[in-house]
Design a protein around this nucleic acid. Sequence first.
DNA 1: CTCCAAACGAAAGTTTACTGTCACTTCGCG
DNA 2: CGCGAAGTGACAGTAAACTTTCGTTTGGAG
Lengths: 189, 189
Amino acid sequence: MSAPSDPVIRPLRADAARNHAAILAAARAALEADGPDVALEEVARRAGVAPSTLYRRFAGRDDLVTAVLEDYVAESVEPLLARAAAVEDPWAALTGVLEGLVDGVTRHRGLLAAAKAVGAFTPELADRTLAPLGDLLRRGQAAGVVRGDLEPEDLFVVVQMAVVTAERDARRWPRYLNLLLDGMAARPG
Amino acid sequence: MSAPSDPVIRPLRADAARNHAAILAAARAALEADGPDVALEEVARRAGVAPSTLYRRFAGRDDLVTAVLEDYVAESVEPLLARAAAVEDPWAALTGVLEGLVDGVTRHRGLLAAAKAVGAFTPELADRTLAPLGDLLRRGQAAGVVRGDLEPEDLFVVVQMAVVTAERDARRWPRYLNLLLDGMAARPG
DNA sequence: CTCCAAACGAAAGTTTACTGTCACTTCGCG
DNA sequence: CGCGAAGTGACAGTAAACTTTCGTTTGGAG
């Protein structure tokens, strides 16, 4: 007895689902290859569909980028956070997750730049990652291995800083992340 | 006896020189206000000239951005470097120049982003700043106050890292620059 | 003061990307 | 296996920015 205002959400037809996935994948690839401002027509071309198909499935650039970002976070970031939460040593857990984040984000700079441009980082999405990061941080601080004056958001900033160093030379970011980690460790004195 | 292949370089006419300066100033303002991809027509509008005037004076976006960048470096960056070279204390000289660079670049992110996009950082331009920075770095290392494994280009990276932190909150970059400076100081042990 | 080369702005042509329309095709239920 | 809803691509209209053309204006030398 579904009211007309509550229609059953129909699953996508097979071809539609195929195209949906193809567009997401093409968008991710195109954002990296052609930059955050890549034309949606180029995305459609890569996906092997007409522009109109892309526009029916996604309201516009914002909607598409948001979907790609959600896809990426769910697929890469959240598993990483979950794995880190299971690591015993607090310092290893924290450094491991930061390395993983920098490594991943470095490979998806186009996506992240586009996401920033369209405001796809909703507070909810940010919290989904900030909360686990905050847990890791507090664990390290409780164990006395991390400086006490750091806040969860500082970890975002640290990742951001390490990522920009990769623009110059993609292989050197560990050097700079280590420099940052040095600064984050609890002072021996 | 100027040969035809060596024509006398005529100085700009008064109105042309005025417009030239107006366009440079307008471009700098527009890049900050509207972002690195601002339309050249918008720059012309701000400068109070027709688009055709802008295009006669500058070959295109690349040329304009390059000119604005040169202008900025000559006006802001090089005096800063010169002043730092005169500071006695090596550590103070280095931290002072880094603070000045971050402060300045933070206020010209649009210009710098555009410059990166069009490849306006020629090797020569980079060297004009890298050389003095290298001097400051070596001075600090000789005095034993700066880690010996740092290279001049690392200073660029440090500035870049500090600048991105300003995207989140323009007032907090000193906090993160200090964290970086901590990591750059010679280890006491 | 006169003149012309330099410079200017208005306007039009070109390109590129966005977005909607419509007739045709295809999926998958019955 | 036939039919209707869902989906699709070709196409075209729109918008925005880039770039050039051309007739007019103006600076400044003689």
